[in-house]
Design a protein around this nucleic acid. Structure first.
Lengths: 249, 249
DNA sequence: ATTTTTTTTGCAAAATTATGCAATATATTT
DNA sequence: AAATATATTGCATAATTTTGCAAAAAAAAT
């Protein structure tokens, strides 16, 4: 029996059931479980299914939905979130960026904090639902379906109307020379507006973001007041920022 | 049994029930509560549900969980929603009011309709998440926590920027002499802005709303093009509107 | 403040998967 | 057709993950 035939059988079954087991397939096709396992691995590499312990399940395709990206760096980002909370005080007006870093901060926000939140992110609003003492100002604009933030000129103009105390800025890439950059033009525009209107910018960056750059320019590193990262140990790179008067946490 | 199968069971249950319990699931799936707890934790990390003490509740980090307390007139409003759908055509720019009437329309919206929606309501956006061909423009402003709409001057200004084809307007109270009125000043302001910018206004009113009035003025009846109600039988009151050139459905 | 319940954490047993290796089958070259 | 190279398969073993249990910690309830 050809390997391709087994592939077909496996995929057919997955088309009908929601799962396949190593043992069953092994018995059905008269090969060892190892073989089936290798088959599944190969199919998984092609993205045709998802290999799981004990078998396989249909691969849920589709481009990165908002929910998926959340799990990525979660530990590191959670660490960052906790550190960043120290900067928030009662009475402040705070901008929350649309990224997942800021989202985790919103998630950890104490219920008794009295602040005004300015944001363009629906998930943030959703999380702040229960916080009675948080006033929310939402930036209008065109809705970006996959990340649930608003963008465009309206959004930019909205941020320009305020003078918030703090901006919690999720960082895609940051580089000592090239400054802060991001992968999307319109989101970069919005970030820039947030930054320029705020008195103080707190950058939220996992270590892997440091020293990288992307296509669209957001702002120079000078605009940042604080960079919050997930590691306490010192890197040489930290010193470059410190010399610029940026506080590293 | 695959771990993924348990995941599926848990998520399925959450799709139907409002919550799931560790104990029940443990018994149902023949695994320890610890395992269920870990499953829930994993699903929670992916944002597929929210882990709570003793079990889990539905939750997406995207919108989705703006709880709609629209039990009141649901049947009548559903009737209205279906009727109102006839007015929506591909290519139109449509304003959705923040009320529950408009919400039900959004819920019944065909997936293949190509329209641009302008709204100040989070629940509307949440419902439109899956509609690929609907572009959403969201009005920024101050967030009203209990109804999840934005209000205030920013919201008003946002609507003034457009010239939508249709405005789907939920009606609190309408009176042949006094016009359309509502119970909240700021919401009235927003409604007025929606109405004034739109070419055509479709009023959504259950019968009990007819002939009543409230504290804050929204607009005269002249501004309405169509009134959609939940009864086909004719009332004398209908004729008054018809004489004014308003179509009754 | 105390009791009860639930969650977290460490740990060991069981199950699953990855890896190296030898045997077999398949393809390619001469 | 024979020889050689390449790929596939099954098995043993090592590494990893999952799972349930028990104790400690934390959170509600009283």
């Amino acid at each position: 029996m050809l390997k391709e035939e087994r592939f077909q059988v496996i995929l057919d079954r997955l088309g009908q059931e929601q799962k396949v087991y190593l043992g069953r397939l092994s018995a059905l096709l008269n090969v060892s479980e190892d073989t089936i396992r290798r088959d599944i691995k190969e199919l998984a590499d092609q993205g045709l299914l998802k290999s799981v312990r004990g078998g396989a399940v249909p691969h849920s395709p589709g481009p990165h939905h908002f929910r998926d990206r959340m799990s990525h760096d979660k530990e590191q980002k959670q660490i960052i979130a906790v550190k960043a909370l120290d900067f928030l005080k009662d009475g402040q007006v705070v901008v929350f960026d649309g990224g997942t870093s800021a989202l985790l901060i919103a998630q950890s926000l104490p219920k008794d904090l009295h602040i005004t939140v300015v944001t363009n992110s629906f998930p943030i609003v959703s999380l702040l639902e229960e916080h009675e003492h948080v006033e929310v100002l939402f930036a209008g604009g065109r809705l970006l379906k996959n990340s649930f933030v608003t963008i465009g000129n309206d959004t930019v103009q909205f941020f320009k109307k305020f003078r918030p105390d703090i901006c919690l800025l999720g960082i895609c890439s940051i580089h000592t020379e090239l400054g802060v950059t991001g992968p999307d033009f319109e989101e970069s525009e919005v970030k820039r507006a947030m930054i320029e209107s705020s008195k103080e910018v707190i950058a939220l960056a996992t270590l892997e973001k440091l020293g990288t750059a992307e296509a669209y320019y957001v702002c120079p590193t000078d605009n940042l007041s604080v960079i919050v990262t997930d590691q306490s140990s010192d890197y040489e790179e930290f010193d470059v920022y410190k010399e610029k008067g940026i506080r590293m946490v």
